[in-house]
Amino acid sequence: MDLEEFLRKKQTSIEQVLASANEEGQLVEEDTLIVVGSLSEGLATLKSDMDLILVTDRDPKSISKNGSIAWVNGKCLVDMEIVHRAAVQELVTRFKGWIQGGWGKTFAANFSSEERKLLHRYLKGIYLDDSDNKKQNQIVKYDEIELSRLKLHCARHTARSIQVDVVGHKQRQDYRSITYAAIELLGHAIDALLASHYITNPMAKWRSRLLESLPDIGLSELDQRFKSKNADDIVWHLHKIPEHTPQAILEQAHEIFTFCRWVFLYAEIKLVHPHVFKFFKVITNFPLPNSDNIGYSTLPLLEFDVDFHINDDEIFMARLNEFDEVLSLSSTELSLVMQFNGKTHEEEALSNVFQKKIGVEERNTLNKLLKAFDQTGLLAKD
């Protein structure tokens, strides 16, 4: 539902809202009024409020002691937050400084959830009485790619902590905590996937609606087995509580972690390291008849805390917080390792990467990987 349709059903109009906002806030020419929230993004329902942000050079408390004003216009509840322009400028400057600082997942970005929401709202809001975009350009000094990186960073940083926690849960045989943590991880992977499509809304309540809006999951750029699959259907399948047995819980968790690892890899390549697309060995959908898999082992699973790191043209894998050996992988090796999902047969994985060019050298590549990952403790020991 767009803004005009919403206001019509609420028996008011943008002109009436603007007039009442002028009256309630005693607006002056330098003020900036922005429609934000679900109404600015086509997510509103008839139960939605109309959220406004008033950016002003005046002291917000001189306009309202609470820093906001609410009123009813027609049958529409209007809620106007008042923000000093200096606070907006400080937030935007700090964000630009974070962007210029480069990419790193070790430390958390110093932005609260409210600040991330504001950065998104300034970028995606509808600026009223601003036909030449002058007021918007005074505030928004960043783009959706930069803000998508912040969303990805927050998802990646939190996800890495969850990965480490889950290994601890497994050691303690705390299987219920594994399930809850895996589902939490899935939520952060959704954020990363949305970020890879430049959807910067950070609010968890819109994850499902926003997933439905994706025209394509995108992961087929790395693995063609994801081609024609809908992101919302995959997530719906994964977002469930398994039977309360260790085996069922670990299987469900590994399925979630395998999918999340693909999402994080894709999102990071797209938003931070796009040059990797040029040399990445894309996994093809090259299934073999079941008879061809007879006698070949199923590939193992990666441990929950195994993560990747990209540095220029190099790709590394290691366990988080273990400080053991780090493995350097070629693009071809990474494509093989990303099929360590406990389901894909060795011959099928080789076919997906090398297709019909499978010989002694190709099989040796996979065998060396299996040995190296086993020796360094990167494989799951359930």
Rank of each mutant, 00 (worst) to 15 (best):
L302E: 00
N321E: 14
H254F: 13
F304T: 03
R363A: 01
T332A: 09
H254Y: 14
N311C: 13
A248I: 08
T284V: 14
S335H: 06
T284Y: 10
E322Y: 11
E347W: 12
L265K: 08
I283D: 01
T344C: 00
R319V: 09
L329I: 04
L271I: 02
T298L: 10
E346D: 05
D307N: 09
D305M: 08
S351C: 02
E255Q: 11
E361W: 04
I315L: 06
G359C: 06
V306N: 02
T376W: 07
F354D: 01
Y296G: 06
D305L: 03
K356V: 15
S291R: 07
Y266G: 01
K278V: 10
E347I: 14
H254A: 13
L370T: 06
N367K: 09
F354I: 00
V272P: 02
E251G: 11
P287V: 02
L302V: 04
T365V: 12
L320C: 11
D313H: 15
L301C: 14
P287H: 04
K371N: 13
V360D: 10
F279Q: 10
K356S: 15
F373D: 07
K281G: 09
T376M: 07
D312Y: 14
L327R: 05
Q375V: 11
F257H: 07
D382K: 15
E325R: 11
E325C: 05
V282L: 02
E325T: 07
E303Q: 11
I283S: 05
